[in-house]
Amino acid sequence: MELALNQPAPLWKRLSWFDWLFAVIIATGSLFALSRFGDFMDIYEKAILLAAIPAMALFGWFWKPFRVLFLVSAGVALFAISQYQGSLARMEEAFFLKYLISSQAAIMWMCALFGLATLSYWAGLLARSGFLLKTGSTLTWSAVAMGLIGLMVRWYESYLIGADIGHIPVSNLYEVFVLFCLITAMMYLYYEARYQTRQMGAFVLLVISAAVGFILWYSLDRGAQEIQPLVPALKSWWMKLHVPANFIGYGGFSIAAMLGTGYLLAQRGILASRLPKLEVIDDMMYKSIAIGFAFFTISTILGAMWAAEAWGGYWSWDPKETWALIVWLNYAAWLHIRLVKGLRGPMLAWWAVAGLFITTFAFIGVNMFLSGLHSYGTL
């Protein structure tokens, strides 16, 4: 009887009116998009859009803060889209577009906010200031919102250039680095709330700030913010599934590496009194790798299926594919050692840190130093 009383109520009984309102808004928006743009979609893209309705609703029910983040970002993005009035030239004429919520302006604000968040987290960690740590969290949430707005508006801008050019903004290094920042920050914010460990933001935001540095260099030096037509191989609905899943993997692995860095410092008595207990950091590191590995596995399978459609074979030992396999084997071994052998402690922390270098080479090093079927991603 006592066990029965302690059982949680079914999910549908635990939902608030705001949960249901969020689901209705998601469904209404998706169905409107289907009615408005369905003629430009194939059957697979329509299926993805319809499947996104329950997926987004469930995600919002599972992680409550996501509801507000999504609704605010979508609302501001829709306002930005209305300001264009069908002309890309309005980007330089309308005040809000020019300085705040065009795609490039919003992404630059995202970069600035992530930089300020990094400084706030470190200041809060070193000064033991709860206020500064909370400020870091607020700035990180704000940066994520601006990044989401930037990507959504960029998607619309690509169609203003031309219906044949329009595409989801996950097609080149500039766009996926923005996506990496957003996914990594959102994953961290979830763990931050779950474990009540704002102190670890000082470490995780370092890797996001490194990505921000790349975005700024890539924009200012290479003009990468300019929207370009897709190469033929990328004109596929597979991209909408493969790329986001891949970067959830990269985000999880990056968080684990920075948590591993914090673990190693605390284990040596550096900042130990300011950081969470080693057991807490270890558990966060494990769960980050587990989630990242699950999505990276899904991404690899989707990538093989996409390759079969685009190039006629599931696997060709292209450098990008080979390094993806190396990344997968690295984290498969890490999880095996932890789960089967029960190993904990500094060795796995060092391994997680080393894994970031392997992942980084697979992410960007291949594009810089090797060539192959994925050469459309070169610098």
Rank of each mutant, 00 (worst) to 15 (best):
G150V: 14
G150E: 09
I298F: 12
D221K: 12
S35N: 10
M110F: 05
T300S: 06
W217S: 06
I215S: 03
L335E: 06
M239P: 11
L132D: 07
L302K: 00
Y331E: 10
L119C: 05
E279D: 13
A145M: 14
Q196L: 12
V24Y: 01
K287T: 04
A272C: 07
G345P: 08
D282Q: 14
W315P: 06
E226K: 09
F369R: 05
A77N: 10
Y218N: 14
R128T: 12
S103W: 01
M186E: 13
Y188C: 01
I326Q: 06
F66M: 14
A202Q: 00
F18V: 15
G252N: 12
M108F: 13
A307I: 03
I298H: 05
A308W: 11
S16E: 00
T359K: 06
A57C: 08
E157Y: 11
M285R: 15
V76I: 15
S171P: 11
F247W: 14
W317K: 04
A163F: 09
F369N: 00
S171Q: 09
G313N: 09
A310F: 03
V204C: 02
R268N: 15
I301S: 03
R268E: 13
E157D: 11
G124V: 01
P8Y: 00
L78G: 12
W63S: 09
P232M: 14
K46L: 08
V24S: 03
F295L: 03
R67L: 14
F37D: 00
H374K: 02
A33G: 08
